[in-house]
Simulated assay, not measured.
Amino acid sequence: MTDIIKLGLIGCGSHGCGNLLPAINTAQNAHIAACVDIDESKVKRTVADLGIENYYLDYNEMLREIPIDAVVIALPHAEILAAAMASINAGKHLFIDKPMALNAADGQTIVDAAKDKQVKVMVGYCQRYAAGRMLMKQLLAKGVVGDIDLVIAGKGSGPLGGWLVAPSEQGGGQLLFLGVHITDQILWLLNDYPLSVTGEIQWHEKGYDETSSYIMRFPDDIVASVSLSMNTAGGLDFIEIFGSAGRIRADWPSNIVQVRTNAVEEYRHPATIMVSGDNSMMYGAQMRAFVEAVRTKSDMPIPGEDGVKVLRIIDAVFESNRLKRPVNFMKNTKNR
């Protein structure tokens, strides 16, 4: 494989073209060889604006005709699986924007197929690269909260539209759109996996989950409580962690971190830290990490297995709401 990684983008919507393409362009060793979208006017405009040589309306044609090393998928949730499997069968490494699939079974299908074809998958949980959340993880490693006891998190937006308000089995709703993000953040920050999930969902009359809350119970009696809504004017995105020595909270996209602790002298008095960094830096760091992993044949920083773990929890929220009881996992899967 050459030092320049040739990429194909499948999906020229607002996220693919507005966030991921500019982020890819920050990677010195990346070259966007082709774009795909079923909307011809949109994909023509994309390649013209960015000087990309090739465009297609069908990703199967791109996979047959263009010599690329990897594929970036930014599609509506219900369309991800087919595009991922076609790319894997063509022998291409994959960046799949979250949630990677509609459910854990489909996510596992992608992971298993990638292993069979000896290609690698990265899932686009970009908030692991958000400046405030990265600082939060660093301070947790320093022991600012001591033994963790409680996590409270919330994420929301104003009313959604388009395919995001399709019925949940077609990929709509807050759980697959935003719930996966906040769930991944909690697993990453705690470096652990829950033993059980209890969820409650408020459904919109059109069949998508509008407001949800769920509790994850972890080993060592740690409890994480998450609330989601698509009726929060101005947006909502916070994680707050409490422990035996203090507490820490990180908000996004403001990247404001608040911390108070008895364990680290620097933060013995309440401190508010405004961390520099914006969305473009977050997406850029994410895509550079993907390109570098492909170029050096290294492990993906957010592998497909991590995406499946998140989807198992989202599946459990739906199941718990249906059964009106907690869903227990057979065993802790931290190292699976």
Rank of each mutant, 00 (worst) to 15 (best):
L160M: 15
H204Q: 10
A84F: 05
G154D: 05
N60A: 10
G235H: 10
M122A: 00
I38V: 13
A271G: 00
F329C: 08
A113Y: 11
A105W: 06
R217V: 12
I256R: 11
D209H: 13
I73N: 07
G161K: 15
S244K: 07
R45E: 06
G154T: 00
A250L: 07
I313K: 02
T261W: 02
I96V: 15
M300T: 07
Y129V: 01
G172H: 10
G146K: 09
Q170Y: 10
L176C: 10
I273A: 08
A104H: 12
I248E: 03
K155Q: 13
R260M: 11
M62D: 08
Q118V: 02
A224P: 01
G51Y: 01
D149G: 14
D220F: 02
A82L: 07
V144L: 03
L7K: 11
M282T: 13
I148S: 08
N255P: 10
V145E: 06
I148R: 07
K309T: 14
H93E: 01
S298C: 04
L102T: 14
G304M: 11
P301S: 13
G161I: 05
D149T: 12
K42Y: 01
L228S: 06
G199Y: 04
P326Y: 03
V72D: 03
T2F: 00
G234A: 02
A114W: 00
W188Y: 12
Y214C: 09
Q258G: 11
L50R: 12
P326T: 06
I239Q: 01
M1A: 04
I222G: 11
V327F: 12
Y55R: 04
P99F: 13
G13A: 12
V308M: 10
D299E: 12
F95D: 05
V259M: 02
H269N: 13
L50E: 14
C126G: 00
A289G: 07
W163L: 08
Y214W: 13
P303T: 02
V72P: 06
V145P: 04
R249C: 15
G143W: 03
D49K: 15
D112L: 09
Q108N: 08
G16K: 15
D106Y: 09
V294Y: 00
G8H: 02
G91M: 01
G243C: 11
G143R: 06
T109A: 12
H269E: 15
